[in-house]
């Protein structure tokens, strides 16, 4: 996709900007990956609406303070709870659309096969071990919060802190799923297993309008 064919007015957008820096390895799709990606993308997109909610909560807090002199510890905590859930649940989605920043200088000059091998080793030796340790530690972390019935330390704050701690653990599990999905695509490319799917005539959604991100 080139920038100039974006939109009727040719108005450039941030989404175009991403196309210019992110160099995506064109991995083949597989049945299982498609399934996983679809689910993770749906979760990420749903979580994207949290930004509207956070905006609303902030406005509510500000207006409440000035118009009604209302206390806001609860609203302050609500802000980082929702915002935190937003980006946490977006992490897997960002991996699915391959928007995590890479240093492309050498990478983009390599053959697809070589890129595949890098991806294979990266997923197996860097990403998955990191996620493995994090998940292994996060589950008891969330569990203990549930067991002691942890609430906010501010008396007027939010109860049920375990919910967000559980979302933290869940988010990492979702990234792991996204990594597994990607791993299948890589093995499909390198070893033909699982069987790569033929690209559909109309590109899957995640590769047309969503493969966009931005290095702010």
């Amino acid at each position: 996709m080139t920038v100039s064919d974006q939109g009727p007015s040719g108005h450039p957008t941030v989404t175009d900007a991403d196309e210019l820096i992110h160099h995506h390895t064109e991995l083949p799709d597989t049945g299982i990956s498609r399934l996983l990606d679809r689910a993770l993308t749906a979760i990420g997109k749903l979580a994207s609406w949290f930004w509207v909610v956070v905006t609303g909560v902030i406005i509510w807090a500000v207006v409440g303070r000035y118009a009604f002199g209302q206390g806001s510890v609860l609203l302050e905590e609500l802000q980082w709870h929702i915002a935190g859930a937003g980006w946490l649940l977006g992490l897997a989605y960002t991996l699915v659309v391959d928007d995590h920043v890479r240093v492309d200088v050498i990478h983009e000059r390599l053959s697809l096969k070589t890129q595949g091998w890098i991806e294979l080793f990266g997923l197996l030796l860097l990403l998955l071990p990191f996620l493995g340790i994090a998940i292994y530690e996060m589950i008891p972390y969330a569990l203990s919060s549930y067991q002691v019935g942890e609430t906010s330390q501010a008396p007027a704050g939010l109860p049920h802190r375990w919910v967000l701690k559980a979302i933290l653990a869940l988010a990492f599990m979702l990234i792991a799923l996204a990594a597994v999905s990607r791993l299948f695509k890589v093995t499909a490319l390198l070893f033909g297993f699982p069987r790569p799917l033929k690209p559909r005539t109309s590109q899957p959604e995640t590769h047309s309008q969503d493969q966009q991100g931005d290095a702010a």
Partner: peptide, 17 residues
């Protein structure tokens, strides 16, 4: 919609780092 998705991906990749 696309602005919100975009926000998520941008925020998420910064938070990932």
């Amino acid at each position: 919609r696309s602005s919100l998705y975009q926000t998520t991906r941008t925020a998420s990749f910064i938070f990932a780092i």
